[in-house]
Design a protein around this nucleic acid. Structure first.
Lengths: 345, 345
DNA sequence: GGATTTCTGATTTACGTACATCAAAAAATC
DNA sequence: GATTTTTTGATGTACGTAAATCAGAAATCC
């Protein structure tokens, strides 16, 4: 049988109240007594029953999620996962509030973080924008003891507790290695379609892609990076003109969103088999394109995993507990047509 | 505020005891009264507080894990993850017992399952062997209301609740597509090293590999499958003689364990760059070989995820609850040198 | 050595649910 | 309509912890 606070009190020769004071860092315990209690905890191997403690505290974890607006498929999927988590609130003792802010607007994000602070939450999960006012707002939350996790996009200079997302340089490298190997020494230039080079994730992916391509396909020629602003129609136009201008195009790396446009352009031109296409994020469209062969490989980060991980980490940090680190590692998933999950994302 | 049993009692105009009877399916409630209570539960959106319920029941989940013996690195890693889960027992209200049985011995596994049944556990997780006596033993457990999850290796004909593992045909296909694309039309035969063709996992992988290669590298010549019995020394010998006999060897697919032997043979022959090598399971050795370029791609299943998932599913089934299915999907992970997790497995 | 401050003990209530008991009410049976 | 059976209510205890109160003991101060 697992030891309880009563067992510790008996063992240490003190009362329940004193054990409680030690366990919860309340004042009013002499050093020697504290030591006695801590030794008893040690020798009995006492572990606080979190369920019982939460019950007694009627603890709920007020959490705030701050997500970007816009109709980006990935971000909508992320929002859906947050909503799914909200529906589990009763079971998980969380109370999740969602704020949405205009995409790429650091000032608005800073204000949203301030607003979140006003709610005195136990934790905040935020899709960060790498800007000084955002760093400042995050640091202020941390100073007040609020746990902060960055989601999808990190904030390296800040004091955030944890980042629930992938290393985008490594993701870019992975795409580069795959592209180099898939081309297998074939000639012809490679095109890169970004969303916006103002976004850190995209810059990181580009950096990694270039480095890995230099190793796996030395001498490969790159076309200038074009920016599709994650908009399918714009990506369609851009890719269509790339295809028209470069009949020998060997590969396309799409490191942002707007894959519907990429797929449409390749298929309109009838070049879907000739051009090696690698893109990011599994969506119903990209999934279909992978299965049909229009897209050759897809890199993905599991939005559901990211949201669940963020919640676990925030709760643990709020209680000062540790987490299973391997469980919180967000994978850079590589999907070929053969290892797709059964259920569309 | 979340509704409690008291709220339901008030709303339905009955006593707490009656609510309790309805909630826990105890006899002694008229149909009409039951309906009243259920309507109240519905309209108030009552969800039982599992933590409080478990506390009141002092519920622990006695679970049995049945794992194969032997010094296979993957299985040892799996055992380590089970042990890690055992150390979390206090927090997770589990009591985990581990049985080990000789590998590939269906009769012994059947006996172990019977023995597990004697412990009257809430759930059993088993690395299955596809044999009639194992199916029978699993079905018997299920009949007694014990939840059963197959781990790593499935048991299709049985009534097991869930399979925590990967689709090995799909894993083989994934390897085949990668191999075909990495070869990029190069000539030269491809060798396949299995552990034992008696094991279903290995047969499945081979089947998938052949099918995908036929698509991605039509006309590729295969050497006869050799069996290394997951033993590094034996794999080393086999691969060394393959390399000596076939100077034009283009690729090797190792679908079992014993990768240390594969790596050693390739490096001794100085052929690690010339031969495209694809293997399974991330271990310290295979990780190093991936980084050095001896192995070109690694397929993996996350043993930690499998164990944690098995426990979640067993607990949920024991309580008749549902699980987040996306969370329990075990991925076929593809690792290149670029997307390795930071921490070795 | 008395007053004050700091520590400790004893006890109680609460969290939300499970489960048992006994009495009372309602329904079914004859 | 009396009896039996079924259904329901009322109540209490338990699970392991949190948190509060108040009294008493020990240490510290002057």
């Amino acid at each position: 049988m697992r030891p309880t606070v009563h067992d510790i009190a008996a063992r240490a020769g003190v009362s329940l109240a004193t054990v409680d004071r030690v366990l919860n860092n309340r004042p009013g315990v002499r050093g020697v007594t504290r030591d006695k209690v801590e030794r008893a905890i040690e020798t009995l191997g006492y572990v606080r029953d979190v369920a019982a403690a939460n019950l007694a505290k009627s603890r709920i974890y007020p959490l705030v999620f701050i997500l970007p607006e816009g109709d980006n498929t990935f971000m909508r999927g992320l929002a859906a996962e947050v909503e799914a988590a909200r529906l589990r609130s009763a079971v998980e003792r969380t109370a999740i509030t969602v704020f949405t802010v205009p995409a790429f607007d650091a000032a608005a994000l800073g204000r949203a973080l301030e607003q979140a602070r006003g709610l005195e939450p136990a934790g905040v999960a935020v899709v960060a924008i790498d800007a000084p006012e955002v760093v400042a707002a995050v640091d202020r939350l941390r100073e007040e003891g609020v746990a902060v996790v960055t989601l999808v996009s990190d904030l390296p200079g800040s004091s955030r507790d944890h980042f629930a997302g992938v290393d985008n340089v490594a993701a870019g490298r992975t795409a580069g290695t795959l592209m180099g190997r898939f081309l297998g020494g074939r000639n012809g230039p490679v095109a890169i379609v970004a969303g916006s080079m103002l976004v850190r994730d995209h810059r990181d992916r580009l950096e990694g892609f270039g480095a890995a391509m230099a190793e796996s396909a030395p001498g490969c020629q790159f076309l200038p990076v074009v920016e599709g602003h994650d908009d399918p129609a714009e990506v369609d136009r851009l890719v269509s003109s790339l295809l028209a201008d470069h009949p020998e195009l060997a590969g396309i790396y799409s490191l942002g969103a707007g894959n519907r446009g990429l797929i449409a352009a390749l298929e309109k031109a009838g070049r879907e088999k000739a051009v090696c296409a690698i893109a990011h994020e599994l969506t119903p469209h990209s999934r279909a394109a992978l299965l049909s062969g229009t897209i050759d490989a897809l890199l993905n980060q599991d939005a559901g995993h990211e949201v669940r991980s963020a919640i676990r980490v925030l709760k643990a940090r709020a209680d000062g507990l540790s987490v299973i680190s391997a469980q919180e590692r967000i994978r850079i998933e590589i999907f070929l047509k053969d290892n797709l999950p059964v259920d569309p994302a």
